[in-house]
């Protein structure tokens, strides 16, 4: 049985409940004898294959690609966000636990004044839902103000809108926290550009090479004494070399 089949049969077990109870040891005595790396702790690589899993709406995909490529554009310093795989990264993240808001406390109600009290925007909506509504609202805003799709606007105009979102000087819609939506996209595009390439972005480690981060290295003892020196270490990724 390969790993995928093993996972499938495991989820079948969980679905039947009672069987899962006996399969899942919760009482331990003695040191565990299984020393293999736990399956669920292995990285969950980006889902590739050329098709989008969450960003399936063509307009939304174009809009977010245009936004990402203004946030991290192609220039002399390297490729744009989408060229580096940040859209594949985002789609994959939105399909996964992050997009599902799997870690968030989402019980209602959200009280008025909650954002001010905590000094941070609070959401019951999942990141996936926030992208869906946010991208729709951004496109509607562009159509209303410029009579054109956001993706088709001149880069300067795109920047102007993004800056307005960042500063909070424009509002995409009454039920959208525009500023927070901008911050969500900025955070995610940076994650895509600077996280391990195993997650779909940072293609050829372009983000790491830009700043000189050596990546998924685990031992600097040979270099730690070369204090203050330029080391020019090659970046390495979690993706095993062929």
């Amino acid at each position: 049985m390969n790993r995928r089949e093993a996972l499938k049969s495991l989820s079948a077990l969980i679905a039947t409940g009672a069987v899962a109870a006996s399969a899942r040891a919760s009482e331990m005595q003695g040191y565990p004898s299984n020393l293999a790396v736990a399956d669920e702790f292995l990285p969950r690589p980006a889902m590739d294959g050329g098709k989008m899993h969450v960003l399936t709406d063509e307009t939304a995909l174009k809009t977010v690609t245009a936004v990402f490529d203004r946030l991290i554009p192609a220039d002399d310093l390297g490729p744009s966000a989408s060229e580096a795989g940040c859209i594949v990264f985002l789609d994959s993240q939105l399909a996964d636990r992050f997009g599902q808001g799997a870690q968030l406390y989402r019980e209602g109600p959200k009280l008025p004044g909650a954002d001010e009290l905590t000094q941070a925007p609070q959401f019951i909506a999942t990141p996936r839902e926030r992208y869906e509504t946010g991208l729709k609202a951004l496109e509607a805003y562009a159509q209303q103000t410029d009579g054109a799709a956001f993706a088709d606007l001149q880069p300067d105009r795109q920047d102007e809108i993004l800056q307005g979102m960042e500063e909070g000087s424009i509002s995409l819609a009454d039920d959208i926290n525009t500023k927070a939506f901008f911050e969500l996209m900025l955070q995610n595009v940076r994650e895509g550009y600077f996280s391990d390439p195993i997650y779909g972005g940072n293609k050829d480690m372009v983000g790491w090479k830009l700043i000189g981060f050596p990546g998924a290295r685990y031992d600097y003892r040979l270099y730690a004494d070369r204090v203050g020196q330029k080391l020019d270490l090659e970046s390495i990724s979690l993706i095993p070399l062929d």
Binding site: F194, S195, G215
Partner: peptide, 27 residues
């Protein structure tokens, strides 16, 4: 340590540093 966060798993800022998957989630 060796079965859950070995060197082949640990150096991953996105998963452990940003998504905080070793933490008990707010949920």
């Amino acid at each position: 340590t060796s079965t859950h966060t070995p060197p082949a798993v640990d150096p991953d800022e996105l998963r452990w540093g940003i998504r905080k998957e070793l933490f008990s989630p707010p949920k």
